[in-house]
Design a protein around this nucleic acid. Structure first.
Lengths: 337, 337
DNA sequence: CTAGATCATTACATCGATGTAATGAACGCG
DNA sequence: CGCGTTCATTACATCGATGTAATGATCTAG
C-alpha cells in the first residue's frame, strides 16, 4: 500500500498537518522537525495523492490543451512547446483533439472541470468554435490563433500582416501571378484562412495587381494531401502561376509534391512559400520559404495568460500578438524568366 | 458554485447515494426515480468531480504517455492515435516528454501515481531506460518500441525483420552499395538503432555483400538536421553509395535534403528509403519508400495491454508484435547504371 | 389483514490532504 | 518567580463521490 501523510507523520513522530506544512511551506516549521519529516518522506518514498489534494483545494495542476489534430507537424511542434513550458512551471498537459467530431471543442470546454483540469488552451478551427465564449461558467480559457471575438484571452500571430509580408516578399522577387493554397470553401471555413487571404489581397492591391480567383485554391483541410489534390487539379486545368503562397507549410509540402509530380521544378518553374516554419520545412527539397515566429514564446505567453486568468477569473480579456518574420529559403527565388 | 451530488439529490428529492447509483448504474433504480434524477442532472448541468471520484475509488481515468519528443512527426502521429483510441474508450491522455532530461522517464514512472494517472505508456530512448522495470511498486506500465528486457508488457514492430526486408528490397532493385543512416555512436545509443543495423547486416550477409562501415553513418539524434549533417560530411569525403537506408523517415528527409544540396538527385543518383511511414513521407520529393505499420492498431493493442495490466497487476508480461510492410514509392527505383 | 420476503433508498463512514481553531510549549519581562 | 505573549504543533472538520449496512417501503402469501 502506498504511504499517506498519516504514515509519514507516524514515521516522523508528528501530526499529519505538520507534514502538510512542511510540504507546502506556508507555515513556519522548526528546522529539526522539518528535517525529520523530510527524512520520513524520503524513507517511505511518499508521494502526495493529487486526487485528494485536488479535491481539497480545488486545483489539479493540470491544463487541457485542445488542438485540431495532433498528428500534423504544426500542432505537434506547438504541443511540444506547451508541454515543455508547462512542465517547467509545474503544470501537466492533458491532450484533447477537436477535429474528429464537430462539437468536441465545445463539450471539452463545458465539461473541463470534470476532467480535473484547472484551465484550457484551445485552438479553434471552425469559426463557430468562437461561440464557446458566449456561455457563462467557463473554466479559465485562452484561445490561440485567430478568433473572431474579444470575450476571451487570446494569443495569435497577426495573420493579415504576415500574409501581406509574405506576398510582398514574393512580389519583391519579381513574381506577378501569385496563387494561394488553402482558401476557405464548402465545408472548410476558418478565420485563419480568411485573414491570410485578406493579407494577400491587400498586398496585391497595393502592388496594383488585379485579383484572379482562378489561382485562389480551396482545400478541404490543411494537409499535404489536400494541397496536392488542389494544386494537381489546378495544373491540369492550365499553366501554373509564378508562385504559390501556401497558408501553411504542410500545404506547401503538398504543393511542391504536386508540382514535382506534374514535372514542374521549384523554385525554377514555380516558387512556393509556406507559413508556420515547421522543423521539416527546412529540410524539404527545396527548403521552404516561410513565415516564422517564436513558438516557445507563443507557449510562454499563452501559459502566462492562462495562469493570470486562473488567478483572476474576471479580469479584462487580453490579446497578445506574437511577432513574425519572413524567412527566405530556396523554395522561392528571384524570377528570371 | 458548481453543483454536487448533494444539490442534484435535493433537486430531485432523493439522497446523494441514489444519484450516484443512477450515474454508475450498478444498483437497480426505479425508472421514475431514475428519470427524476436524470432530469435534475440536466437541469443543474451537473458534472461529477473527478478528483473526488478518483480519491474514492482510486482511479483517475488518466493515462500518461511518455514520448521522447512530441515535436517529431513520428511521435506526433503515434500520440495522435493514442489520444484517439484512449478517448473512444473513455480515457484521457496526459503528456510527458522524456528526451529533455536524462532521468525524466524514470522519475515519471516512479511518481506516476502522484500525477493522478492510472497507467503509463512509455517509449524509452536510451537503453538504460529499461531499468525502470527493475524496481518494484511500479504503476501499470506498457513499453512501446524496442526494449531489452521481458519484465514489462511491450508492443513493438520487429525492427530486425523490417530492416532486413527493407535492405532486401533495395538489393532486389539492383543496389549493391547500401549505406545506413542513424547508427548508434558516442552519446547516442538506442536499442532500435542496434536492431535495425542488425537486420541490415543480416540481409547484406545473406546476399554475400561485405560490410563496409564507411557507409554506416552515425547520427547524434534522429532528426532531419542530424541526418543532413552526417550525410553531408559523408558526401564531402567520397562518392555516395547506391542507396541509403535511413532508420527513420525523418532521417530520410534530411538525407534527401543533403543529397539535393550536394547536387545529387533521388532516386536517380542515390535511392533513399526510410522507416515509420510518416504522413509527410508520402509528399516528400520524391515520395518516400518506407517501412509501414498500422499505427492505429499499435495504439489499440498497447491500450488493451495496459488496461489488462491495470486489471491484473501480476499477470505475466506480454510482448505484442505489430506486422509491418515495405511500401515502395518513388524515392527508390531500379538501379539502371 | 398481517407476517415475512424482496428490493429501492438512505445514513454514515471513508478515501487523503489541508484549512481552521484550539492547544501547548517556550520565551521575555516585570 | 509568575504571567502574558509568541509561535510551533495538533485535533477536527472539510472537499465530493461512493461502498456498506441499515432502513423503510412495497408486495405476496397464509
Amino acid at each position: 500500500m502506498r504511504p499517506t501523510v498519516k504514515d509519514v507523520a507516524a514515521h516522523a513522530g508528528v501530526s499529519p498537518k505538520t507534514v502538510s506544512n512542511v510540504m507546502n511551506g506556508v507555515v513556519f516549521v522548526r528546522p529539526d522537525t522539518r528535517a525529520r519529516v523530510e527524512q520520513a518522506i524520503t524513507d517511505l518514498e511518499y508521494v502526495p495523492n493529487l486526487s485528494a489534494r485536488g479535491l481539497r483545494n480545488g486545483r489539479s495542476g493540470v491544463i487541457a490543451l485542445a488542438m485540431p489534430d495532433l498528428s500534423t507537424p504544426y500542432s505537434a511542434e506547438m504541443s511540444h512547446h506547451f508541454v515543455e513550458v508547462a512542465h517547467e512551471q509545474g503544470w501537466v498537459i492533458q491532450f484533447e483533439e477537436t477535429a474528429v467530431e464537430p462539437d468536441r471543442a465545445w463539450t471539452l470546454v463545458s465539461r473541463a472541470r470534470a476532467h480535473l483540469v484547472d484551465g484550457v488552451i484551445l485552438n479553434p478551427i471552425t469559426i463557430e468554435d468562437g461561440r464557446v465564449a458566449t456561455s457563462a461558467g467557463l473554466p479559465p480559457l485562452v484561445m490561440i490563433g485567430e478568433v473572431q471575438q474579444t470575450a476571451v484571452d487570446q494569443v495569435w500571430v497577426d495573420s493579415v500582416a504576415a500574409a501581406r509580408d509574405m506576398t510582398n516578399h514574393l512580389l519583391s522577387l519579381g513574381h506577378r501571378r501569385i496563387g494561394v493554397v488553402g482558401c476557405v470553401g464548402p465545408g472548410f471555413d476558418t478565420a485563419t484562412a480568411r485573414l491570410r487571404l485578406d493579407g494577400y489581397l491587400e498586398a496585391l492591391a497595393a502592388a496594383g495587381i488585379p485579383r484572379d480567383d482562378r489561382v485562389e485554391l480551396t482545400c478541404p483541410e490543411w494537409t499535404p494531401r489536400a494541397a496536392a489534390g488542389a494544386v494537381g487539379r489546378s495544373l491540369a486545368a492550365g499553366p501554373p502561376p509564378d508562385a504559390f503562397f501556401c497558408f501553411t507549410d504542410s500545404l506547401a509540402i503538398g504543393t511542391i509534391s504536386a508540382l514535382w509530380s506534374a514535372g514542374h521544378t521549384t523554385p525554377g518553374d514555380v516558387a512556393v512559400a509556406g507559413f508556420d516554419d515547421i522543423a521539416d520545412g527546412q529540410f524539404a527539397t527545396p527548403p521552404l520559404t516561410t513565415v516564422s515566429f517564436d513558438k516557445r514564446m507563443f507557449a510562454e505567453r499563452t501559459l502566462a495568460l492562462l495562469v493570470a486568468r486562473m488567478a483572476n477569473p474576471h479580469g479584462i480579456p487580453t490579446r497578445v500578438t506574437i511577432p513574425h518574420t519572413v524567412i527566405a529559403r530556396a523554395s522561392t527565388a528571384t524570377r528570371t524568366r
